[in-house]
Design a protein around this nucleic acid. Structure first.
Lengths: 205, 205, 205, 205
DNA sequence: GATGAATGAGAGTTCATTCAT
DNA sequence: AATGAATGAACTCTCATTCAT
């Protein structure tokens, strides 16, 4: 097993790290754990990464950054349409997030909270997390504002506040889910009953 | 300072651990860190605790369990009153939580998420967290149900779902607060605009 | 073997390091080597030193700094005497150095040259070495100048140049000694035949 | 730059190693350092050398052995002349050494002392160093003896002792120069004032 | 000739834990 | 109740060396 593609091994390391991170957290995860799990030895880790820290950054870049980009292109286009259904769009967004997370939901949640904790001692991670949150906030803010303009979303609450609550409840459910995996995450859709006005087409799920 | 009450030192250790946990997390926190911070030496730690693990459990017991008890006695009494204002009660509950957290808000949040992560590898912690969540859930569920009975809280959404959303949004705001400490946590009160029906007395703060 | 005096173990580490340094050099010397040689385990090294680097500095401080101090007190007093024999004084100085080195001559030489090499990458060591050389230079310069004043040392060569040659030949012989341990280091005394003028009482050892 | 002459690359490796040795020492120098510095990769090192050890020997052979050969042919011829000026010859020898060292003086010095230290654990290096010293000693001894025969060099000191002091002071100045690069190495010529008798044409540089 | 992925031994360092004092 | 020396396992990282390509 002397030779394999560098890129392939690197990808395996990134994937394994992401999976294992959720279990033990990044700090408690040893390079030995990672490399053993992909059938390589400790020493060869450093062929692909300069340090464990670099590995973390790469995991964030390749794993957590993606997904967001996929949506920020189409959604804005749909919003500009004259007769658009903001609630439908928002549900699509959330559904797509769910799709991305898929069965890895818990893994993602743990990975994220590990980052959160890691951010305390790592400026780079802290900045990245905040930027990431800002991206989502900006993105959702656009949707909410459009909903208010079209008279579909209530206007008695400030746009940014609604955005914050939207984000808050989504991540909040993640936490509940971490504590009680049997919880029904789709309940989160009920927030729509509250933020959208006179909505005859009842929701499902 | 060679001799002091055992109980006093033990309390100091518990307090210091809680404070330091927020910064570095429980795992990254060394016994040396803790003992140095209270002016004692590493060796004497084991006079008070059998292991680092036991320390964690004691922190949870003495720090995180309390607060809850303080409320679960008075609130139910108020709820049984004929003409009670459920919204006012709920706001009192949240205000009281805020009071408990006080300036340690971030500390609490980090401590909690450390536990969350720790729960992955520690059955004891996992069970405790779930029990803790259940306590709160049960407690809030009672309030919400009473609100619905009195016609103060909307009934088109299931009692437990409203409870879950209530909890979700509260913890969700904590997360947002961890990422962006400049966020206004009191926004969370707006959820009341949504769950309570025809409420003329506008909210505050 | 759980308990011993900290100071005792620390001294053992310093001594062992000095001895072993001569063999393998400081870099090639592992902490395991040192601790095993004194019957302790690697981990306990860090009870006494913060790092391997600190160990090096302490070795320099406690080993290489001493000796010099012993002389710089008496010699100057002797020099101020009206009828002093500078050659005798100089020979005493060199004899005393030899006495300090004793059977550890090779060890000292190797330790010193390891430092020399280490100085390339360690500012602290570089500065220390230069300061150490300056001390000796200043010390010898005083002796030589006094000898010239008294008409005992030739004045056709600059004071500092004589000092430099004196130092040069002493360390030079150390090098020769490293390459060929059978060389007779006491030959170095012949330099006196050259620097001192009309000296009837010839001398070799 | 995929393919080049093997010999060319080998020479590059030898040169780079010599240069880099002075900075970090041979042990601290990694094969990666060397190969990167010449724009090749680690793996190809083993096309040219069997091991790192072999590299060291080759550096010694090709770098440190030369220079000596250049002189040992002409000088003896000059010495046999009836009316030869031994002092002039000796100065020529030293000047030539200086020329060989050139601006690499410090590099040579460090490289040499690394070897010195390396000799402790490597029989081959030890033997080579001793042979090298013997060569120089023999060579200088011939010059000194001839100077004594011609009455140009003092005879009150043993031939070999003068030779040793000559070597000692030359290498001694190298050490001083390592510690204090601002020192004037040409001072070393003053030893001639001492070993040569009634020399009217004084000399400094 | 050159590449670069992989290896495995060993480095310095940290740390929970033990125990004689 | 407190100390601090000692332990040993685990960690991140380095590096000479091998080998399929």
């Amino acid at each position: 097993m002397k030779s394999s593609t560098g890129i392939e091994t690197k990808r395996k390391i990134l994937d394994a790290t992401f999976q294992l991170m959720a279990d033990k957290g990044f700090d408690a995860l040893s390079i030995d754990d990672i490399m053993t799990s992909i059938g390589r030895t400790k020493g060869s880790f450093y062929v692909h990464f300069k340090s464990k820290e670099e590995l973390l950054y790469e995991v964030m870049r390749t794993r957590l950054d993606r997904g967001h980009d996929r949506m920020t292109e189409e959604i804005p286009k749909e919003l500009t349409k004259d007769k658009c259904n903001v609630r439908a769009i928002l549900e699509k967004v959330i559904a797509e997030i769910h799709a991305i997370l898929g069965n890895d939901r818990l893994t993602w949640a743990f990975a994220y909270y590990h980052l959160l904790i890691h951010s305390r001692k790592d400026e780079f991670v802290r900045v990245w997390l905040e930027a990431n949150a800002d991206q989502w906030s900006t993105f959702l803010n656009i949707i909410v504002k459009r909903g208010q303009e079209l008279g579909q979303i209530r206007t008695d609450v400030d746009t940014q506040t609604i955005t914050n609550m939207l984000m808050g409840i989504v991540v909040g459910y993640d936490i509940l889910f971490m504590v009680k995996p049997q919880i029904d995450v789709s309940e989160v859709y009920h927030i729509h009953d509250w933020m959208f006005v006179n909505d005859p087409s009842s929701k499902d799920e």
